[in-house]
Design a protein around this nucleic acid. Structure first.
Lengths: 219, 219
DNA sequence: CCGAAATTCAGTGTTTTACGCAAGGATGAT
DNA sequence: ATCATCCTTGCGTAAAACACTGAATTTCGG
């Protein structure tokens, strides 16, 4: 059987070299290259026969999600394995939705790294232990989403409420938000009240922290 | 000559293993262990003859600075080399003040890693290229610190201001902070004004985000 | 079509913040 | 002794936020 051809994506060269070094004496895996960003990756993907992409994610944010989407669209046959430095629930779920096939936590060791690559190469999904729990909790505990749940963190907010929330987190005042959205300040206040009631928050600062925790804004 | 005995400090096991793997075939360096936090480190330092500590810093915050201070105090002969994922100026300067002897950027490669360990082992300081520039700009451009500088990012806040800042970031109102600190609300307002003037912020939300970025509070 | 939710807006009054101005006492370094 | 900084407090006005109640319009699934 041919070796699995892997490419590493990590903005930190030192991390890339470390991973490469870790995989270098594996019989099943060949590291075909290390790249630092999406554009370098896309170039390599056009000329190299890659099976698996190992993508390091440091900050939970839209950036990596977008990258996954693009890779999936251009190269749907390539499996994407996430090496995540965060275990943030919302981020994990978003990478899965975007098309990642596996998830490694920062606490993985060499064995788990190799095992996960083999697993997703064979068409199965792979999740680190700690992460499996989170996914289970999320997807099994809450059977349907047909009724309004009042206690789950995000998702319950409407589009408009999400929009308003982001603006608050970006330091806009009520009036500024109203002007930006071409609505009355009353509307904005109303949205704010609804947001805080839904997520069960008390202050604007709590709201900002909620937005940050859930990657609604850049920090 | 004996090999240089190095210990790795990184919360991400996968990173530890990668670094270890990178250093494993060096003739000059022996990796004596990987630890994930300060308490594990202190235990190891009592039983192992360590020359150099390679400390990974992901988020610029007080946490790592404090760690450096403690290590320096307990083991002043050991050289601390920072592997920083951030190039944030204020953070770099703070690690130096705390006692770090060298600085590697995330863009370092294996050669630079080894070279930097050898350098600080020999008693010299080592700074990555990109970081040298920053330090140069900072220390050569501004000859002394005998006059009041109004533009440096952090570190300029007094203890009390830091305390107030944290309380704001924890959602307390002016009045609540005043009660908590047994001072007048005017005092609190005054502190807030000074904080925002010093760091050049406009709103409370900005202040909260600053606190989060600098790890002053849990999020 | 109906009903629930989302989105919009208003009144009224209270509370909290924002912001500029001024200043006294303590501490510490030069 | 002097100067800077820190911590403290005060006042007043304008702006913003908050609390509470009520309601019209749109949207969208069943």
């Amino acid at each position: 059987m041919n070796k699995i051809e892997v490419i590493l994506v990590d903005d930190h060269r030192i991390m890339c070299e470390g991973l490469k070094s870790m995989l270098s004496d594996s019989h099943e895996i060949t590291v075909m290259g290390c790249v630092r960003n999406l554009s370098e990756l896309l170039i390599k993907l056009r000329i190299l026969p890659i099976h698996v992409i190992l993508l390091s994610c440091y900050e939970p944010g839209d950036h990596d999600i977008e990258m996954i989407r693009i890779i999936q669209r251009e190269h749907p046959q390539i499996k994407i394995l996430i090496l995540a430095m965060t275990a943030q629930e919302s981020f994990i779920l978003r990478t899965l939705k975007a098309g990642a096939k596996g998830f490694l936590s920062k606490d993985a060791d060499r064995n788990e790294l190799i095992e996960s690559i083999l697993t997703i190469r064979n068409g199965y999904d792979y999740y680190s232990k700690s992460i499996s729990e989170i996914i289970l909790k999320r997807y099994l505990n809450q059977p349907g989403n047909n009724n309004a749940q009042r206690n789950q963190p995000a998702g319950v907010l409407s589009d408009r409420e999400m929009e308003v929330l982001k603006l608050y987190a970006e330091s806009y005042t009520n009036q500024e938000i109203a002007d930006k959205l071409f609505v009355s300040i009353r509307t904005v206040e109303s949205h704010k009240n609804n947001i805080m009631r839904k997520i069960n928050l008390k202050t604007t600062v709590d709201m900002v922290k909620f937005a940050i925790r859930n990657n609604l804004i850049e920090i």
